[in-house]
Design a protein around this nucleic acid. Sequence first.
DNA 1: TCTGGGGTCCTAGGACCC
DNA 2: TCTGGGGTCCTAGGACCC
Length: 432
Amino acid sequence: MADYFALIDCNNFYASCERVFDPSLNGKPVAVLSNNDGCVIARSNEVKAMGVPMGAPYFEYKKIFRENNVRVFSSNFALYGDMSSRVMNILARYCPDMEIYSIDEAFLHFKGFDCFFDLSSYAQEIRTFVLRATGIPVSIGIAPSKALAKAANRVAKKFPERTGGVHVIDTEEKRAKALRWIKVEDVWGIGPRYGNMLRLRNVRTALDFSLLPDDFVRDSMTVVGLRLKHDLMGKPSIQMEDIKPKQAIACTRSFDRDYLEYSDLRERVATFSCEVAKKLRAQGSDCNLVQVFVRSNPFKVHLPQYGRSVCLKLPYPTNSSIELTKFALKGLSSIFKKGYAYKKAGVIVMGLTPSESKQLNVFHNSDPRHSPLWKAIDRINLLSGHDVVKLGGQDLRRKWKMNRNLLSPRYTSKLEEILKINVHDKEEIERA
DNA sequence: TCTGGGGTCCTAGGACCC
DNA sequence: TCTGGGGTCCTAGGACCC
């Protein structure tokens, strides 16, 4: 009996979501863009094969995309979020110990499963069922530690014909083979900085990394790096995580153009504060710290650059949009400097506490009338489908807009946008 | 013209306490 | 000339993830 970890990862998740509802995209190159249609954040295999890197600026690749008939979409998080929970619900049926790692990935802890199942066939079963029930293709890596499961997943995804989308590392030979194949900078937990540092020391593969002395790894990469090393050696050191309450909630955005005036920024910061306050209320939390930042556009190197952030300790915990906005704007006024072209701002709240058990202050407290007020406003906004009730400091004339020119319908979360099938489509789907 | 957003964890160093 | 030591808490900054 042994402990195994499985990593289930949706293939090209956002691109796959778009394909589920438009089968004509199958086999065609598909790309999905970030907010404001700024960067490429998801690519189908065809687009990856064209050499388009993750995070590539859209404007640089527009021409190439046009020439190659790439189907491009604005990000549709309402759709992806819903598809994600469908996939996760299915995965949860296959294992009691599951960690949702990101919107498109989950770890399953197969403790002693190898006594009862052939792990590879079990994973194949999961894969087949997820695909049939949701239309999303997944790859599965299984190994004695989480980092090795990540590595196994990489193998499964890279060689779908040979592996059938499932790869199990259950022998020393397979472990060494996989690690020798993975470049050090592609290891989970080794980013560009560490990758560079290790390259300079002639560490080229995941296997090289796993053979480094512990002391060196700890000194140069902290205990996080050391845990990773042990995990890759097959000594599980990275644990399954429980669902933890969030520590911070943020709303940050780049602007559609440069902002010069304080009044423009004030509107954005007010809106971001309302957004985080709404998220706080949705999860039943208050916050007692609010951080505000602004910055100019680092890509415009010829312009003077400025960026600053400030963190305000609140006199009392709150989740009222009115109060939070008041504090955030106070922060903004302390860091705003005239004469710069601002491109991005954000509001982040920390020090989250459950609204139920808040620590009251002797002198100042959140206005007790706000709690029922926002409960009512949240309900009105929810029923109407968008924010009809706003603060006066927000964008009442809707000057602000996000570029989302290539958006697909919210097929699964808006009745008006639900998929319509005509006979012609149906035949096509059946053929597909 | 045009370059995302939302998170986590760890460490070093300063302030403060006795 | 010469100025303790150990502990805790907080914060800023740096690394990483998807």
